[in-house]
């Protein structure tokens, strides 16, 4: 069991368009991860599709990168549609 690796689990729900991260499982291989994910995360009729991805294959932002990664977007108000004033003639878009 020491050789089991961690997989991240993504489930697409019945009415959902995209897979959402729901949690993780330990497994010896991808098939086992799929089955464990099915048993753990779709017990109550939640899903129609499951993806599993080895956690080690995910490249993630680090906690100490939060400021350079995300703070610069805080003051870019012009990136929001609501920043722009619409001429009255346009009416409701």
């Amino acid at each position: 069991m020491s050789e089991w690796i961690l997989f991240e689990v993504f489930v697409r729900s019945k009415h959902g368009l995209n897979h959402k991260h729901v949690g993780s499982v330990h497994a010896a291989d991808a098939n086992m991860a799929l089955e464990s994910a099915r048993d753990l995360y779709t017990r109550r009729n939640e899903g129609v599709s499951i993806w599993v991805v080895p956690s080690a294959q995910i490249t993630a932002t680090a906690g100490d990168e939060k400021e350079p990664f995300f703070d610069p977007s805080q003051d870019k108000v012009y990136r929001h549609a609501s920043f722009y004033e619409l001429p009255d003639e346009v009416g409701h878009m």
Binding site: M1, W4, V25, H26, A27, E35, S36, D39, L40, R43
Partner: peptide
């Protein structure tokens, strides 16, 4: 069971 995942699977 040897792991939580297996326990859930077996009980299912």
């Amino acid at each position: 069971a040897p792991a939580l995942e297996e326990e859930m699977a077996l009980m299912n």
